[in-house]
Simulated assay, not measured.
Amino acid sequence: MMNPSTLSDSIQLAVAPVFLLTAVAGMIGALTHRLARVIDRSRVLHKELMDESLRPSIRDSYNQELKNIATRGRFINVSMIFLVLCAIMIGLTILELFFAETSGGKLMVSAFVLYTFVAGIASFILALISLLIEVLIASYSIRWKPHN
């Protein structure tokens, strides 16, 4: 039978990285929202481009916006991939910490914990960088001055 104090310590050690998972879940939600907006705008532009009476200058503008939207969608997808990878790595870290602590009552952490945790943090950083690039593309593709 396991000592309640040891079990309590095990749970505390394994739960600490869960806070990172909460941040990852929030970011996945935000990215899902951004991707939905990109897809919706893309559908509107495709519908507008079907109009044969569209002026060539507007058609060119819409095509350029579609290119920006496609690039944004790719960066959102890359960020989402890194976030899911981060969640998997942190989940593996939590499992290893919990099982190492509870097996035999002693902490027998292997190098695997270090690798999964570092990979999780690295994935999180790469996801943030991808998100930053997507936001920059979105903000620089907006026309800030009124049309003449």
Rank of each mutant, 00 (worst) to 15 (best):
I125R: 09
V78M: 12
M2C: 02
G91V: 08
V38W: 01
A70Q: 08
S57W: 07
A138W: 00
A70C: 06
M2W: 03
A25D: 03
G104S: 04
H46V: 02
L85H: 05
L92R: 08
M80C: 00
V44G: 06
Y140F: 10
L92N: 07
L7N: 01
G73I: 09
A100G: 05
S8V: 00
I142Y: 06
A23D: 02
Y115W: 14
S130I: 10
S123T: 03
V84S: 14
Y115K: 13
M1Q: 09
L131E: 05
V135Y: 07
K67V: 03
R41G: 08
L20M: 14
M1S: 13
V118E: 15
H46W: 01
Q64L: 13
F99T: 09
N3Y: 05
N77G: 00
L132K: 04
V15H: 08
N63R: 13
P17W: 08
P17T: 13
R59Y: 06
K47C: 13
N68K: 10
S79A: 15
S10G: 11
N148C: 04
C86G: 03
E101K: 01
F19E: 14
F82W: 05
I142S: 05
N68R: 12
R143L: 02
E52R: 15
Y115N: 01
A36F: 11
L97P: 00
L66T: 04
R41E: 14
L54W: 07
L83K: 09
D40Q: 14
A127D: 10
L92C: 12
A36I: 06
A16G: 00
L83P: 03
W144R: 01
L92V: 09
G73M: 12
L13M: 09
I90K: 02
M108V: 14
A111D: 10
L7T: 05
L31F: 12
A14H: 00
I125Q: 14
L20F: 08
H147Q: 09
A122Q: 04
T32N: 03
V18L: 02
I76L: 15
G104F: 09
G120F: 03
M108P: 04
G105R: 06
G73N: 11
P17L: 08
L7V: 07
S103H: 13
I137L: 02
R34N: 00
E65M: 13
A14I: 06
A25W: 00
R55G: 11
I90E: 07
V109S: 14
G29A: 12
E48I: 09
T6A: 01
A30W: 02
V18C: 11
I94D: 03
A23K: 00
T6E: 08
T6D: 04
S79V: 06
V38S: 02
I133G: 05
S123D: 05
S103N: 14
R37Y: 10
L7R: 05
L114A: 14
V135N: 05
M1H: 08
N68S: 15
Y115C: 04
S53H: 14
S42R: 13
A127R: 01
G26W: 01
E65F: 03
A30T: 04
I142V: 10
L128S: 13
V135E: 05
M27C: 00
F112R: 13
D9E: 09
L132E: 00
N68F: 10
L83S: 05
S123M: 10
M2H: 07
S8A: 02
V135T: 12
L54R: 12
H33S: 08
A111T: 12
F112K: 12
T32F: 00
E52H: 15
E101M: 00
